[in-house]
Amino acid sequence: MASVVLSEAEKLYIVHGVQEDLRVDGRGCEDYRCAEVETDVVSNTSGSARVKLGETDILVGIKAEMGTPKLEKPDEGYLEFFVDCSSNSPELEGRGGEELGTDIANTLYRVFSCENSVDLKSLCINPKEHCWVLYVDVLLLECGGNIFDAISIAVKAALFNTRIPKVRVLEDEEGTKEIELSDDPYDCIRLNVDEVPCIVTLSKIGYRHVVDATLQEEACSLASLLISVTSKGAITSMKKVGKGSLDPESIFEMMETGQRVGKSLHIALQKILDEEENLGTSRPKVGFLG
């Protein structure tokens, strides 16, 4: 992961600031940086979103393709995650980037392993034979700290934006099945994203923990806790990352904070997504020119 080198004095400055609930950029311990979310940025995908969280820049594209359901779940579609971070910095090219990429993808699989996060049954076309597979490709354009949160926001926004064409299965007298695609390109199914969790990363700095750490703050933190929270405030997965260890009491506190922050994050994100949706075709597209 991209990292910065800080002197001891700089670290001390950040740690002391966090203890006073005032961070280097003027935020409190539970404040996110200003986030920009735009959906439908890549026209060749079924759904896409770009999220800019401070310096961190994430692009997610989702392509729906037809595949065969997994044997153990014959009446469900499934999601595949792929994370590419090679464009980020020279040290992430090749092996290093691949490792970070699979690490992030594994975390996403765990976060979405909860059975009702996405309604997978709606992705089934006909059981045991055809289903929709959603390929979720995450591109890390720029890394400015807190990539996990930004990625999960982008994935949720992209899933909200995803439109899967409606198909019908026709069966003739001999029992051969035929799949018919609707003529109307606007005739699509949308996914229900109410239960899609967002990741909240809580970094332990000194005696306190902060959300949405910048690269500088990540350099001061030895251990952080990733918590995925649904909009109702239920925790679906947890993971400790980093070289350090955590006190049990602080983990309990972090879970409480994570739930609180995650809930308000979901509300803010849903509001933005609905607003953008209501603008319809009159929406000015910013894309990468803004």
């Binding site: 909860c114 925790i235 679906t236 997965s237 947890m238 993971k239 006190d247 983990i251 309990f252």
Partner: peptide, 17 residues
């Protein structure tokens, strides 16, 4: 000190975890 926490599954309130 807790050195690893790794888990997931059906959601629950923080008290449960």
């Amino acid at each position: 000190q807790v050195s690893a926490v790794l888990g997931g599954g059906r959601g629950g309130p923080p008290e449960d975890w």
